[in-house]
C-alpha cells in the first residue's frame, strides 16, 4: 500500500529528519511507530500526506509516486488519508456534529448525505449522545474521538495518528486505542506514532523503531523498544 524507497528529508538547518529510509506498509496493517522526540516519526507522517516534500527517494501510495502528484491534486490524496493529532485541532465554536460536518462540507458532500452520515460516525466512535456538545464541554478522550470521527468522515483507507494519546490519562488513552483497533478491524490501515509504551505493548502488532531518521528495529507483534 505505502512504500518508502530510500527516502531522505533534510530540514533547513541541515539536520536529517529521515535518512535513506525504506519501509513498506500493507493494506489492513496496524503499525506502531516509536522513537524519541525528533527521531523522524512526525516527518514520516507529514511526507505521506504531502505536507512536506522529500529531498531524495520515492514514496509510493498504491503505486502512485506522491512527489509526482500535482499540488492541486494533493487534496484528493488527503481525502483518502485520515489524520489525527495530539492537539485534536477541533473548532471550539462548533459542536461535535458540526466539526465532523465541516470536514464533509469542505470536500463537497451534500447536506443530506452529511445529515445521514455524521450520526453513524458518531455512533461508531461512541459519541452519539455528545453530538450537540462543544469541545469545551467534552473530556480529552471524547475530543480525540471526535477528531478520529472527523478523520473517518471520508472513509479513508489509511488513518495516521500522531501522538493521539499524548494529552490523555490512562483511561482515556485506552478508550482511544480501542477505537483505533476497532477502526483497523473494519479494514482501515492504521499508522500510530506514539511514546506510550503500555499501549504499544498491549497491541501486540507490528512495531517500527526510528532513531535519527533511520529504522533501527522492526518487530512483528512487537513491544515498545527504543
Amino acid at each position: 500500500m505505502i512504500k518508502f524507497q530510500k527516502v531522505t528529508k533534510h530540514y533547513n538547518q541541515g539536520s536529517k529528519a529521515l535518512d535513506n529510509l525504506d519501509l513498506e506498509i500493507h493494506h489492513g496493517e496496524f503499525i506502531s511507530l516509536v522513537g524519541r522526540s525528533g527521531a523522524g516519526k512526525s516527518t514520516l507522517l507529514k511526507l505521506i500526506i504531502g505536507e512536506e516534500e522529500i529531498d531524495s527517494g520515492r514514496i509510493l501510495i498504491d503505486d502512485i509516486d506522491i512527489s509526482q502528484v500535482r499540488k492541486s491534486d494533493l487534496p484528493y490524496l488527503r481525502r483518502k488519508i485520515g489524520v489525527v493529532f495530539q492537539d485534536m485541532k477541533l473548532l471550539p465554536k462548533r459542536t461535535a456534529f458540526e466539526n465532523i460536518a465541516f470536514a464533509m462540507e469542505v470536500c463537497g458532500h451534500r447536506a443530506q448525505g452529511i445529515k445521514r452520515e455524521v450520526p453513524k460516525i458518531l455512533e461508531l466512535v461512541g459519541l452519539a449522545h455528545k453530538r450537540n456538545s462543544f469541545p469545551g464541554e467534552m473530556s480529552g478522550g471524547e475530543k480525540q474521538r471526535v477528531a478520529i470521527a472527523r478523520a473517518l468522515s471520508h472513509r479513508p483507507v489509511l488513518l495516521l495518528a500522531d501522538e493521539p494519546t499524548g494529552n490523555l490519562d490512562e483511561v482515556n488513552a485506552n478508550e482511544v486505542l480501542e477505537l483505533l483497533i476497532k477502526i483497523n478491524n473494519l479494514g482501515t490501515t492504521v499508522l500510530l506514532a506514539t511514546h506510550a509504551a503500555d499501549l504499544v505493548n498491549k497491541l501486540k502488532k507490528r512495531v517500527i523503531t526510528i532513531e535519527n531518521g533511520k529504522i533501527t528495529l522492526e518487530q512483528e507483534k512487537g513491544h515498545y523498544k527504543l
Partner: peptide
C-alpha cells in the same frame, strides 16, 4: 484554525 483543518481533510485550494 479552519484553514488548517480544511487543508488536512482535503479541501481544494480554491475552496
Amino acid at each position: 484554525e479552519e484553514v488548517e483543518i480544511m487543508r488536512l481533510v482535503g479541501a481544494t485550494n480554491w475552496y
